[in-house]
Design a binder for these strands. Structure first.
Lengths: 210, 210
DNA sequence: GTGTGTGAAGTGGTTCACAGCG
DNA sequence: CGCTGTGAACCACTTCACACAC
């Protein structure tokens, strides 16, 4: 069955919450309680969880450990994904140092940058290569996922060269531009300036109301 | 009229594209062409643009300069927003150095961190204060928008203290946790690890298909 | 009684299809 | 004739409401 994107996003959040509840020793949790913690409707939580079979107990709630492990299974990876990070500037190094990538599902195997002063250096234990060698190294090291943190002017040409390697299956794009890829390469984009602009737009709208 | 969130996001992207086309000297553009550049359907582009009156010419397309200035107007701010950034770690400093905040709609006025070794120092021309002084300084400097780039364990208490100042109208949250705020404080969240997990989930699904 | 699971209804956003204007 | 503007159809996701299991 196809699981909708918003549902997957919420599953990740349930997973996080349950991990915490589990650590705290809580045994049982209701859809109501999950909803309040994460600002979702209880009915939404139940619907999301029901996609994967009857996991809760009527009149009781969900068993924290069981549900945690269940969602863990749903989100689990067949193996550790090898990641490449292109662009070791401010944002790229932030991502490197950031918790999001210190995760047992992924492993950063290589860095790439066009700045020759960075090439050959090691950042957070990972070596930086020149961007021109990206396709070659991605193939050699069996890298399947690429995080793109380069300026918009460089984004598309980076994409073209790594896609040409034929090894890349997914791209997490942080460049403020929409990139084009063959249909078999999945792309998720995080556009920070769009998010900021959206917030500012609605702030302005709020102000106009008054 | 209420403009839907996805529409606002696309407007920001139209704006960027038109700026480029305008610089390049292109005079006219069709919904078709905009759609191809940004990977949206032409009908979607036309619907989005039609919310703001008849701005295109039938049989011709949209006048680049006119449309650019029109969208500029829609997205314009009543004034420069003053921003505070909480959390001058990897991600926070990346955001500081990053282009998204070098924008004539916003101005970073203050930084906050709980690390005493950072307090009193200046980063990218902006002084860092202790987080405990945040509410006070936010009021004093009339800061209305706060960017939150702290670990999830600290997020909610930061939110509570800055919201208590009564001056904050919007929060751009980068912490991997959902925060609760009074209804009159707008929140936009960018959850990098959720985005990564979503990508990995769909990569796994793709693999299962084969 | 309590809280889940779920069909059905509702809501919001996208896409179609074509009338209408340049 | 070409491309926009737009009501209507469509689709996807959310919420409701209640039967059902504990």
């Amino acid at each position: 069955m196809k699981i909708a994107e918003p549902t997957v996003g919420r599953l990740v959040q349930y997973h996080r919450l349950l991990e915490r509840l589990y650590m705290e020793g809580q045994k049982v949790v209701s859809s109501q309680e999950i909803g309040e913690s994460l600002a979702f409707k209880a009915s939404q939580v139940r619907k999301d969880l029901s996609y994967f079979g009857e996991i809760g107990k009527r009149g009781v709630g969900y068993h924290v450990e069981k549900l945690y492990k269940h969602i863990n299974e749903i989100l689990s990876s067949p193996r550790k994904w090898k990641l490449g990070l292109i662009g070791v500037g401010h944002l790229g190094s932030a991502l490197l140092g950031y918790g999001a990538l210190r995760n047992d599902k992924v492993e950063i195997s290589a860095l790439f940058d066009n700045d020759k002063s960075k090439v050959g250096k090691v950042f957070f234990g990972v070596e930086c290569h020149h961007i021109d060698d990206a396709a070659k190294i991605i193939c050699r090291d069996r890298i399947e996922v690429v995080i793109l943190a380069v300026p918009s002017s460089a984004a598309q040409s980076c994409v073209d060269s790594i896609v040409s390697s034929g090894c890349v299956k997914g791209i997490l794009n942080f460049s403020p531009i929409s990139i084009v890829t063959p249909a078999d390469v999945l792309v998720t984009s995080v556009d920070i300036s769009v998010e900021l602009e959206k917030l500012l737009f609605y702030l302005k709208e709020e102000e106009k109301k008054k």
